[in-house]
Nucleic acid binder design. Structure first.
Lengths: 348, 348
DNA sequence: ACGTCTGAAGTAACCGGTTACCTGACATCG
DNA sequence: CGATGTCAGGTAACCGGTTACTTCAGACGT
């Protein structure tokens, strides 16, 4: 038999022999209350095991709401690491943070945003790249206005900024720079035929990485070759499948692979191995993100300060940071998935 | 300049020329309302972009609260996968779910549980193993009663059940069975000197895996050897460090390793490689959990139905399932990290 | 035509806190 | 000694919904 009636602030007041206002003040903080009164109240609270109702509080006082982060899936390390940064910073700021997942489903994203509006979340952080088209832009702009109307801030993480009018803050990684750097790394090791794995036209993250790839090639005077740009989603299975297809067509016509992210790289490595191609002896490969599989694979990749992104998003949302859009730097992590071809190239 | 005042149900009522009760009924659902009236209301809602306040709703009506899952870190795949299962099932049950992280900090766990009491969460799912001592038991029992008093259900995932009286539901994996199976796998491949990596006395998960390991050894008539049971936390770094220490002391006095989880295994593999020991040619290794690094390492391991655990936890919390404690089965996944020693053993 | 029943819509109390404003006791001051 | 200031603490309105109870109009029966 559980407690039939929840214990409320009036129960506490009655028990302590004071008014509800006094109880509220003792609990609330700074209002002056006599030590004796304070003691009576705290004792009553303890004796009754009183827990204030967060909903009632939120309703009357305009207290800070929760900070929500919305991601595709928490099982994808990229998102998990950013979410972790958000959680840490939010905790540090004394906020409750919650992670919501959409599974990449637009309809579910919409209902989550709606839910967060109803919850009067203090901030909503939308993470992860998407296909940026007109439909997307209008949807985001709607979110931005709707959330602003509900008093929530919107932060876009790793997504391109919206139009001028939309009240959305933006923070992301320097994908083009990182991609440039890691491609240059391959080029300076003597590679000239570099496969880009993970083409996704319209997909913001992929697009900016491709841009870095192309600009590095151009810088080294290597002509671009569309047949070296292979489409693939950004997950392990896609990398595996794409590389399988490529290798089924014949022996590799490339000496190195730049995978759009580490998951793709992991899949590609598996495929290469199954085709009897050694990494890096026969094929070099680099990834992007520096998430868990990278270390185990000894993968040279681009390190992203995921938790800094999460932290920055929170601080931006809370008005602690002013510069938006802001871009976080990246740096290359050299492991041993790249073979130097030396000063001269060996023939195919 | 944002909207100075939030739009409330009274604004909608005024605009639609009806009473607040009518608006509430149109939004609420089943109460009979004339089609014409309903239309007026829905139009007003749309025109004003009205969003009901979830706090006010929660306060007046006793509607279902959110389902919260509390984990150490969302960046650990084991937790991420379980959390994913929870999210999916919760979404399916029409509940909002939130993930909270403690970073393994007891104080933070406490404040999160407190927060969830205040939020009147419908269910709180505590995941992850812990050192089970008297202090832990009393703490959990307190949580259980406190949450029950606030009307929330408590589900313990992968933690040992509490005493009879405590109102907590329990669901977990069959760790002993899985550990037995995977150890037997090594034994039947001819291994006799099997290192157990990840001893953590008092730690529930580790303890049950050790128990399975020992019982398999006993079954095969192999005497236990305490020097083959090595202490280590359940993460990659610990596995790496522990194996480094072991190998620094001299060449391996074991032919196989059973790592308490895949992360430990990943660390151990790195250490073995750096010491010039090939896996599985010179040292065989198996892990536990079947989380992402396992596939990339080609690790033979025990597969855990993580998302089923998450789903079961939610269904248990919602009273859809009655049997608690319940245990989920596991199965072994053979990759190629184990070498068969054949019918005879080669001498050391 | 009148009483009764039915169902749509309105009125206002209530959920559990917070806080503006008020009260009353005591200290201070001209 | 009365006017005034200070400060702990009480009273009650309010936050934004839901819903029990009430009202009222029209349909129906006789």
């Amino acid at each position: 038999m559980t407690t039939p009636k929840r214990v409320t602030i009036r129960d506490v007041a009655r028990r302590a022999g004071v008014s509800v206002a006094t109880v509220s003040r003792v609990l609330g903080g700074d209002y002056p209350v006599l030590a004796a009164t304070r003691n009576k109240v705290t004792r009553a609270v303890r004796e009754l095991d009183y827990v204030p109702n967060a909903h009632a509080r939120a309703l009357s006082a305009d207290r800070p709401g929760a900070i929500a982060i919305v991601v595709n899936s928490v099982a994808v390390p990229y998102y998990a690491l950013i979410a972790q940064g958000v959680e840490e910073q939010a905790a540090q700021e004394g906020r409750l943070s919650l992670i919501c997942t959409t599974g990449g489903d637009t309809a579910r994203e919409l209902s989550i945003v709606q839910l967060l509006r109803e919850q009067r979340a203090e901030a909503v952080i939308l993470v992860g790249s998407v296909i940026v088209d007109e439909e997307y832009r209008t949807r985001m702009t709607e979110y931005a206005h709707a959330l602003a109307a509900a008093g929530s801030r919107l932060v876009l993480c790793g997504r391109p900024p919206l139009g001028e009018g939309a009240p959305a803050l933006v923070v992301g990684f320097d994908n083009t720079g990182g991609a440039h750097a890691v491609t240059a790394h391959l080029l300076s090791a003597g590679h000239r035929r570099i496969l880009y794995l993970g083409l996704r036209p319209g997909h913001s993250t992929s697009d900016s990485r491709v841009a870095g790839y192309r600009s590095a090639l151009a810088e080294y005077g290597v002509p671009g070759d569309p047949s070296l740009e292979v489409e693939a989603e950004f997950d392990r299975d896609a990398g595996y499948a794409a590389m399988n297809r490529r290798l089924a067509a014949g022996p590799p016509d490339f000496t190195a692979v730049f995978a759009g992210n580490d998951l793709l790289a992991a899949g590609a490595v598996q495929s290469l191995r199954e085709h009897g191609l050694r990494v890096p002896a026969e094929v070099s490969i680099v990834g992007y993100d520096d998430v868990p599989p990278a270390q185990d694979l000894g993968l040279t990749t681009v390190h992203l300060p995921h938790d800094e992104l999460g932290r920055a998003a929170v601080r931006l949302a809370l008005g602690r940071l002013t510069s938006s859009p802001m871009t976080l730097g990246t740096h290359i992590v050299v492991r041993d998935s790249v073979r130097s071809l030396g000063p001269r190239r060996s023939g195919s």
